[in-house]
Design a protein around this nucleic acid. Structure first.
Length: 178
DNA sequence: GTTAAGATTCCG
DNA sequence: GGAATCTTAACG
């Protein structure tokens, strides 16, 4: 039997962001490039951003043109440009109406959210992309479960003591899978 | 209409 | 430590 590539479906993304985010670690992030090349990357770090209460979440300041997709159903992509240079790749989670998303900060061998999107050629055109049906970007299950640790999120000091310190960043600790 | 600041990265 | 680089959201 060869390796089975099983795409994650709507149910995976429809759960609360605090369930989905740690569950993203170890999963395959799959990109089919314009030339037809398919590459698979193991997600190794992600952060949860959860709704209107979370002062670090873009949606905490309400519905805007930029945050629109976060208010939709889980399984879609939220990308935005930061510092005029880097695209941030987020996976929308939860049911329609609850603005949540996971920022994918790293995959194995590519550390940093800006480097990740540069390597995978993810830009504005992926805003709203449906990971359940897309032919160029999706996730696949991985039966091997990595061990995970949590830590405060990066770069959100402006959100105040509570939201800046909460452990909503998840990182792979061991790496005996693939 | 104007402007300050940003879920980053790289260089000195 | 500071620049690069530009969109967004807040303010007037």
């Amino acid at each position: 039997m060869g390796t089975v590539h099983k795409r994650l479906t709507r149910d995976f993304y429809s759960r609360d962001v605090l369930e989905v985010t740690p569950d993203l670690l170890g999963k395959w992030l799959v990109r089919r490039f314009d030339d037809g090349t398919v590459r698979r990357y193991i997600i190794s770090e992600a952060e949860a951003y959860r709704g209107g209460e979370d002062k670090a979440c873009h949606a905490s300041r309400g519905y805007t043109e930029r945050t629109r997709v976060m208010f939709g159903e889980g399984g879609h992509v939220y990308v935005y440009l930061i510092y005029g240079m880097y695209w941030m790749f987020n996976i929308v989670t939860g049911p329609k109406g609850l603005p949540q998303a996971s920022l994918v900060r790293a995959v194995l061998n590519i550390d940093g959210p800006g480097k990740l999107t540069r390597e995978l050629c993810i830009d504005r055109s992926f805003y709203g992309e449906n990971l359940v049906t897309s032919k160029r970007l999706w996730l696949e299950d991985n039966p091997v479960k990595p061990s995970i640790r949590s830590a405060p999120r990066i770069g959100v000091d402006y959100a105040g003591e509570y939201w800046k310190n909460i452990h909503w960043r998840y990182i792979i600790e061991s790496n005996d899978h693939q």
